[in-house]
Design a binder for these strands. Structure first.
Lengths: 194, 194
DNA sequence: GTTTTTGTTGATTGACGAGTCAATAAACTT
DNA sequence: AAGTTTATTGACTCGTCAATCAACAAAAAC
């Protein structure tokens, strides 16, 4: 049976299975066996490719972050001007690829993982910085000095919408979610308030 | 040694210890022994008073929710008019009692718990409903038909600020956090936007 | 064609932890 | 004072699970 060149295939399958299982169970209390089974292999093989369960989790996080980053970059190159770019960034956060049950569930759990696994915290901070910088660079020309706190608010709002979605059931509505954030943005840009 | 009437004392100690330990470890992977030890008793006794670990978690959630509810109610009776009341509700969410490291950490983990333990989900939904209704009833006179989505946005923002605080280190700044939400509120009330 | 590398798994180890039990003792009841 | 209830714990059971190992097989290298 052994065909050569399985490593990347197996690893990809495990990463995917990890996300699905975490999403399904709703916590990080998934066994390596569960993940391996879903990925169609023995738990021993999972350990063979990833040294430990923690490595699997981190790989899964990286994968989600990579997908997310690609989505944002893609949306960004297709848009001109700060306003359009902001909308693109926000929409990317709620794109069908990212705003799915399993991914949302996994995301929430990665926040928890970040509390105890420093490496996970670092990954999450990379995401936060990236989001913040994307928002900030496009907000500055529109909001000037207000840009900074506006970016913070927007970022928190996006995360909050994710969090709340995790508690709901049914198919997530990315459009509606994005609208909440865009609405916030618009009203903040309209009236610079006091 | 056995003094009578220990039950409420022990239970309270366990609830407190549960929150502290979850906050300290940063996950629900706390052993009953750890909790019991921090509460100054044997794990057997912890099992004696609460049937199971899950019961301890739920009791801890209820406790946090109770504190939170009391805080909000207190802030509410001390204020007049929708505007002032909204500020009161928002501030209560970030009051020193609620916006503490351990509580924030515990809160995040309860969201995760809600994914797999129905009872926890119910408790969390009680909180969400309460927050929503408090916001909504005071937003309606100020924002009219916009009130509904504004409440959703505000609620998500509040949760998001919590989530982001969980990733930070150092002492949480409740004032700054509340300002983010109040700023959102103000700008939304100013320009009803398009 | 033998050696090495890569793929693969069933079985095992070793640790840890939730929950139970039996025993002990102080405090209340009658 | 005998009996019951409440408090308390050390020791134990039983299950689970991450990680390792030994073994086998196919491909690649030499």
């Amino acid at each position: 049976m052994p065909k050569v060149g399985m490593e990347p295939i197996r690893k990809a399958a495990l990463v995917k299975a990890t996300i699905v299982e975490i999403g399904r169970v709703g916590s990080l209390d998934v066994t390596v066996s569960q993940i391996a089974k879903r990925a169609g292999m023995s738990s021993a093989l999972a350990h063979h490719y990833f040294g430990s369960k923690e490595d699997m989790f981190l790989a899964a996080m990286r994968h989600i972050l990579t997908l997310y980053g690609a989505e944002v970059r893609g949306a960004l190159v297709a848009s001109r001007g700060p306003q359009e770019r902001l909308h693109a960034v926000i929409s990317a956060n709620f794109s069908p690829a990212n705003f799915r049950r399993e991914v949302i569930g996994a995301w929430l759990n990665f926040y928890v993982l970040a509390q105890s696994v420093p490496q996970a915290g670092r990954l999450l901070r990379v995401y936060q910085r990236r989001l913040r910088s994307n928002l900030l660079s496009n907000l500055r020309p529109l909001a000037g000095p207000k840009a900074d706190e506006l970016a913070s608010g927007l970022a928190a709002l996006i995360d909050g919408v994710y969090l709340r979605e995790a508690l709901k059931q049914g198919v997530p509505d990315g459009k509606a979610a994005a609208d909440v954030a865009i609405n916030y943005l618009n009203s903040q840009l309209k009236g610079p308030s006091l």
